[in-house]
Amino acid sequence: MDSKLGCNPSYMWRSILWGREGIEVGSRWRIGDGKNVSIYHHRWLPRPSTLKPFSPPLLPSQSKIAILIDENGCWKEHLIRNNFLEDDADQILKLPLPKKPLEDQLVWSYDKRDQYQVKSGYYVALRLKLKDLPSSSSPNIGWWKFFWNLSLPSKIKLFYWRAFSNILSTYLNLHQRKIPVAPSCPVVALLTRINISRWWGVN
């Protein structure tokens, strides 16, 4: 998870790291003993978008969740109320803690069972792909929610999304990603020659 892109990455390696970004954005920590999770730097609150506290850092910046849990495995409500905004404090105190000491665990934040689902994974990937586009060119996210809920085969939904995002493995896209293929599709070239031949009456 800490690997770098490097100075001359292949298309495959860039794709793997792009996928890693989606996992990071869609994941959050389920709190156990709180020893491995940073209060201000990790994603751990079940809140859309940031998954992090909104509160200004009143505690040391590298503080772990463990300092907010007492020896009985309960939240230190007084400490939390004094160092977090009301909304953050309420969110933290609602989080269940294990009855027995357990390690913190990474879970998928976009599923009720905390398990990764392809549907929500592609939703996160779509958000990442469109985050740098101007708002006028971004599609209606509500429409995409409607689209993913349609009773269509998953492979058709996936093909439509890939076509819309221009990430189909066409000859042009492969050529632009430095894959050694011709930039033009041979089928299109053949059909073009056939049409030209018919136009000029050449057999």
Rank of each mutant, 00 (worst) to 15 (best):
R20N: 12
L106I: 14
Q115K: 15
A189Y: 10
H78T: 11
D114L: 15
I196C: 08
G32Y: 01
P186C: 06
T50I: 06
S151H: 11
N83H: 07
C7H: 13
S27H: 01
S197C: 12
L158T: 09
N83V: 03
E103F: 03
P186E: 07
D114Q: 15
S49W: 05
K100N: 01
W18R: 12
R193Y: 06
L174E: 04
R28P: 07
K129T: 13
P183V: 00
M12Y: 03
I194L: 07
L85S: 08
S137A: 13
K119Q: 14
P60L: 02
N149I: 02
W18T: 13
G201N: 08
N72R: 13
G6L: 01
H41S: 11
L168N: 08
R198F: 13
R28E: 02
R127G: 14
L93D: 05
L128A: 03
K100V: 05
Y123I: 15
L172G: 08
W148M: 14
F54K: 10
P53L: 03
L59G: 01
W44G: 04
V181C: 06
L106D: 08
R198V: 08
W144N: 05
S63P: 00
S169M: 12
D88R: 08
W108H: 08
L174Q: 09
Q105W: 07
W18G: 14
W148Y: 10
Q105L: 14
P48Q: 07
P101W: 02
L106K: 15
L5A: 11
E77T: 09
K52N: 03
I80S: 06
A189I: 13
S135I: 11
D132Y: 10
P98T: 00
L95P: 04
P56Y: 03
C7M: 08
R177L: 10
K145R: 10
R81G: 00
K131Q: 15
W44C: 01
D90T: 11
R162S: 12
F164P: 03
S184H: 10
E71M: 05
E71K: 10
Q62F: 08
N166V: 01
L95Y: 00
L17H: 06
P98R: 01
Y40C: 05
C74W: 12
E77C: 01
R81A: 06
W13Q: 05
R20I: 08
E71R: 08
D132E: 15
Y110A: 14
W144T: 06
S49F: 09
S27P: 05
Y110T: 10
Y123M: 15
L85A: 04
S138V: 12
Y110V: 00
L5W: 05
L102I: 06
L58K: 12
P101K: 07
T50D: 11
I156Y: 12
M1G: 10
W75Q: 01
L5I: 14
S138H: 07
S135V: 11
N195D: 14
S137Y: 12
